[in-house]
């Protein structure tokens, strides 16, 4: 029996098998799934914005930003016994829901770029992504298999 752990907007959580981490309806937000296969630990963060340094009162909720959210996710996983060198990443989201959102303010794209850059700096390998375009995505991350299932209205179910 799999237990599904729901992760809200600007939140994160970690799990061990048979846990499944889920986050619903990612628009411009990005869902970051980290997996340490060796130690059997997975984590998922649902971030909204690329950079905590751009915010006036970032300290209110650090899980909102790519930089601080990812840092906390890594630390939480380490606390459960995971090691940074064993982690791989899969990401989803970062869409642009409406065309009127001007290109320069395309927060989805900026979120994805920020996450990729951060992962690179941590030397975490990005092994799969389903990002960009203009549709919402729901993510189920199965910690036992490391499969990230992405559900959307237009594309149906995609397993990555």
């Amino acid at each position: 029996m799999q237990s599904v752990i729901n992760i809200g907007i600007s939140d994160l959580n970690v799990a061990s098998p048979p846990g499944v981490l889920a986050t619903y309806a990612l628009g411009s937000c990005v869902g970051i799934c980290l997996h340490d296969r060796t130690h059997n630990i997975g984590g998922l963060a649902h971030i909204m914005l690329p950079d905590s340094r751009e915010a006036s009162n970032a300290s209110e909720n650090l899980r909102r930003y790519a930089d601080t959210g990812l840092a906390e996710l890594i630390e939480t996983m380490k606390g459960k016994g995971a090691s940074l060198s064993c982690m791989t990443a899969k990401i989803a989201g970062g869409a642009q829901m409406f065309q009127t959102q001007l290109k320069t303010f395309n927060i989805g794209e900026r979120n994805v770029e920020a996450v990729k850059k951060l992962l690179y700096n941590y030397r975490i390998r990005l092994i799969a992504e389903d990002t960009g375009s203009n549709y919402g995505r729901t993510v189920f991350f199965d910690v036992a298999t490391g499969v990230m299932q992405v559900k959307s209205v237009t594309k149906g179910i995609v397993n990555l």
């Binding site: 411009s28 006036s56 009162n57 959307s152």
Partner: peptide, 22 residues
């Protein structure tokens, strides 16, 4: 601009605007 999709993804657009300040 029109969008037919999950309510959560659509409503995250105003949320993100406010996430900068609170």
């Amino acid at each position: 601009s029109l969008c037919i999709d999950m309510a959560g993804a659509i409503l995250s657009v105003p949320s993100i605007e406010f996430a900068r300040v609170g």
